[in-house]
Simulated assay, not measured.
Amino acid sequence: MKARSTAIDFSRNVPEQVSEWLEEAGHTLAALPATGLRPARAGSGWPDIVRDLDDLDCTRESDDWPIRPSADAVSRMDQVLNWIGLFGPDERNYRMVINMRLIVHPISGLHRWSWQKIAKKLGTDHKRAQDWYQAGIGVIVKKISQPEIFSSQKPQNILF
């Protein structure tokens, strides 16, 4: 994967960049390790994670799991996940669609939620779900384009 900046380039197509960053965040989230994250000397009586049948059924070239993401990729993922918090209560459908599309299979890289599954879950058709996804990207673009989003001294009483 090519190295990326940790900031959106506002001289380029911003909605396209937001979409790319959302895609990358999903892949980074899927590649994070699911074991070995406890503090030292912390234990658990639970058995190790048993992989889904989807994981076992996936056709792949090797038995290796995805490589761990770089610190920069994790930083970008954190930034993208913070964007999800920018949605207001009236933009719940946008948030739900974007969150569902962030879930990616760790081996194949395919989305776990197809447009049809998302539409069924939300009680709509797949075209409307895709429209909500694009509208959600538009909301993110509008909100991250505001200079106070990137200010290091954001007022405490700012409301989105």
Rank of each mutant, 00 (worst) to 15 (best):
D9A: 04
F87M: 02
G88S: 11
T124R: 10
Q153R: 11
P47L: 08
F10I: 05
K120Q: 15
T28N: 07
D64Q: 04
V104W: 01
D63W: 13
E16C: 00
W115L: 02
G88F: 02
W65R: 11
A30H: 05
C58G: 05
H27V: 10
G136Y: 02
E23Y: 13
L102K: 08
H105E: 08
T35D: 14
W46V: 10
P39W: 15
L29H: 14
V14W: 00
A119C: 06
S5G: 08
Q153N: 13
V80I: 07
N13C: 02
F150L: 13
S19N: 14
A42Y: 14
I137E: 02
T59D: 13
L56H: 15
V14Q: 04
S108C: 02
Y133I: 02
R38Y: 05
L110Y: 08
V139W: 04
R41V: 09
D72M: 08
V139C: 06
L81T: 13
W21F: 10
W46H: 12
A7C: 08
R12F: 09
D78L: 01
G109E: 05
D72F: 05
L81I: 11
D54V: 12
I140A: 01
N99A: 09
D78W: 03
D55I: 07
L81K: 08
K143S: 10
K142T: 15
N82Y: 08
L81G: 01
H126L: 05
M96L: 08
K117A: 07
K2F: 00
P106K: 04
K154E: 10
K154P: 00
P147H: 09
L32Y: 01
M96E: 14
N157K: 00
R76S: 02
R112I: 14
E61M: 09
Q130P: 01
D90N: 12
Q17H: 12
V139A: 10
I144E: 07
S11G: 02
R92L: 07
G36Y: 03
E20S: 04
P147K: 06
I84K: 01
F10A: 04
P33G: 05
I8M: 03
F150V: 14
I140W: 06
R92T: 09
R95L: 06
F150A: 15
M100T: 01
G26V: 05
I158F: 00
L86G: 03
V139G: 03
R128V: 11
Q156S: 14
D52M: 09
Q116C: 00
H105V: 02
A7L: 12
E20F: 01
D57W: 07
S152T: 13
A42L: 12
W132I: 04
L122V: 00
P15T: 00
I107D: 13
K142W: 14
Q116S: 09
R95E: 15
R51I: 11
P147R: 12
K121R: 05
A25V: 06
P89W: 10
P33N: 13
D57L: 08
T35F: 05
S19W: 12
W83N: 03
D72Y: 11
C58R: 08
Q116W: 01
K142A: 15
L159K: 15
H27A: 10
P69N: 06
R92Y: 08
S19E: 15
M1C: 08
A71E: 12
N82I: 00
S44G: 13
P89A: 11
P147Q: 09
E24S: 07
Q134R: 09
M1T: 14
I103H: 13
L37S: 03
I149L: 14
N13Q: 05
D63C: 10
W115S: 03
T6P: 00
R4D: 12
